[in-house]
Design a protein around this nucleic acid. Structure first.
Lengths: 124, 124
DNA sequence: CTTGACCTTGACGTCAATGTGAGGGTTTAG
DNA sequence: CTAAACCCTCACATTGACGTCAAGGTCAAG
C-alpha cells in the first residue's frame, strides 16, 4: 500500500511516516515510480510505534526495540542480547512516569473534592 | 528565601523558577535590592508544579489549576467554577496517557518474555 | 491534453521547557 | 579594596516530533 492509505488507516500523518522512515523505524520498498510501498504488516508496526512514542520513548529507543518484535508478533525473548538492559531501564522510566501521572491525577482529584481511592501502583 | 535556596531545596533550576514566574505560576515578592523573595510555602508549590508538568500538563494548564490549591492545601471544591470542566478533560488525558504507558510497558515486557499480568487500569 | 489526486525531496517554521552566556549590580568575608 | 558568591535582565541556542510550503514527477479519468 502507498503512504496515503497507510496514513488513513493508522491516523499517522504522512509527515510522521516519512520521519519514522528517516529515523530507521520503517523501511518501505519502492515502486518503480519511486513511491513508497508498505506491506500490510506495517499497519501494526505503526500502531506500535505510536504507542511507544506517546509513552515517551524516543525514536532511537523505538528503533532499537522494534526490530525485535517484527516477526509475526512472536516473542523473541532470547535474541537481541545486550538490549535487554536498555529495555529494563525504559521500563523503569515508564513505571516512574505512571507514578507521576497517578500523583498528578490525585492532585486534580483533590481539587475537585473527589476522594482518593487506595489503589495499587500498577507495576512490579 | 532567595532563588538559590529554593532551587537547592526543590531541585528545580533557577532558570525554571524564573520561567515559571514568567508564566504566572509563581509570584515572588522582591527584596529592596530587586532579588526575588519566596516564602516557605513555595517549596510545596514548586513540587506540585514539577509533578503536574512532568505529567504532561502545560504551564498554562498548571497556571489555571494552581491558584485553586494555594490556600494551605485545603480542598476548594466549590470554587473555581468553570474550571472543573477543564480539569475533567485533563484528567481524561492523563488516564489515556496512563493507558498508553501500560500498553507500552506490556510491549516491552512481551519482548523480554515477561508474562503479562491481568491488572486493572487504574482509573475510574 | 488537461485536470486532479497522489506521490517525491528539501528546507524552513513551530512549540515548550530549559540551557547557556553576556554584561552587570549587591553583599559578605578577608 | 577586592574576591567570591550571590542575584538581576536580556536574548539567543537547543531538542524532538512534527507542520507546512515549494517545486516538481506520476497516473487515471474525462
Amino acid at each position: 500500500m502507498r503512504i496515503g492509505e497507510l496514513s488513513r488507516r493508522t491516523g499517522a500523518s504522512q509527515r510522521s511516516l516519512r520521519y519514522d522512515e528517516e529515523q530507521g523505524l520503517l523501511t518501505p520498498t519502492r515502486l518503480p515510480n519511486g513511491y513508497r510501498d508498505y506491506d500490510e504488516h506495517t499497519v501494526t508496526t505503526v500502531r506500535r510505534i505510536q504507542v511507544l512514542l506517546s509513552a515517551g520513548l524516543g525514536t532511537s529507543a523505538v528503533a532499537e526495540i522494534l526490530p525485535c518484535a517484527v516477526d509475526d508478533g512472536v516473542v523473541l525473548s532470547g535474541r537481541c542480547p545486550e538490549l535487554i538492559e536498555g529495555l529494563a531501564k525504559e521500563r523503569h522510566r515508564i513505571n516512574a512516569a505512571i507514578g507521576d501521572l497517578i500523583t498528578a491525577r490525585d492532585i486534580l482529584d483533590s481539587l475537585v473534592g473527589r476522594p482518593l481511592r487506595a489503589q495499587a501502583v500498577p507495576s512490579r
